[in-house]
Write a protein that binds this DNA or RNA. Structure first.
Lengths: 154, 154
DNA sequence: GTTTAAGAGGACTATTTTAGTCCTATTTTG
DNA sequence: CAAAATAGGACTAAAATAGTCCTCTTAAAC
């Protein structure tokens, strides 16, 4: 289903929350309680986001996390990369020469193009977009489509 | 890593192969041998593609599979949906009311937008594009990006 | 200067998903 | 009817993910 992990889902939720009150420090415990999530899990997500420098952290008593920068500067692609590693749909797009059928594959360069398409799409949605009402979203209509509708499948 | 499964990878490989000789019937065994993949696995993939009507099938001795239609009419989004189910990054985009934090989530409508962005990107790549040389690919540059580069992560 | 409230970092376990295999039934040709 | 295919499940093994826990460091408050 081309899914992202739950941790990423939590991450987006937490970031969205933090974006609503920029600059304010939030502790992991506080956020976990507010959103009814496990404390350890929230801590893990925040640590990952912090490591990727999407969050600024203040250690010690009274410390916590806050956004590293303006919500409009934090892209979906950054968030996903922080929590799931490099955005790449297949193994072979990440590292070469590791694929048993590679020599006879011939598809690899094409996967890179597909990756780019997805990556670009995710680059174009920022945290700021997620805080705005949904109707204000960018609509992605650069190329006329044969069909756009939900969940295709002829 | 926002990955697709191996089966989808195989599917793209097989479809690409078939697109090169349109109309010709191929048996699962034949394709498995050619690409050095397990016979049962290839059979599974072909059955799924057939069920999604991306392949036409001829049963009985001498039978096999061939593309349902022109390669340019088969979109990446169709292939992924056939092999992984509906394209949706999170559970809650697929079915409502099933999410423990839903009432307090507020992010759901936004995920739908993100899904749309990805879906659109995958709608715009067809099997025909994968058969052409990579340089001829559509380049997806509709919006100026702050950064495009590979695998972000600041 | 000790206690307490935080984050950093890593290791581990359990759960869930995915991949792969196999079996039985059906279809069609020769 | 025998052989070569696909259809459709059920099952098993392997891999990835989520979630938990422990120890260490940092800094404020008392």
């Amino acid at each position: 289903m081309l899914r992202i992990g739950k941790l990423t889902d939590y991450g987006v939720l937490l970031l969205t929350d933090m974006a609503a009150a920029p600059g304010e420090l939030r502790s992991a415990t506080e956020l976990a309680e507010k959103h009814h999530l496990g404390g350890a899990t929230v801590a893990k997500v925040l640590k990952l986001l912090s490591k990727a420098q999407l969050l600024e952290t203040v250690r010690g008593s009274g410390g916590g996390y806050r956004l590293c920068c303006e919500a409009s500067a934090i892209r979906m692609s950054d968030i996903i990369a922080a929590l799931e590693g490099p955005i790449a749909l297949t193994e072979c797009s990440v590292h070469d020469g590791n694929c048993s059928i590679e020599s006879d594959c011939g598809v690899r360069t094409h996967w890179q193009v597909i990756n780019n398409a997805v990556h670009t799409a995710l680059n174009n949605v920022t945290l700021a977009d997620l805080v705005k009402p949904a109707s204000a979203m960018p609509q992605e209509q650069h190329i006329p489509l044969t069909a756009v509708g939900g969940l295709s499948r002829a």
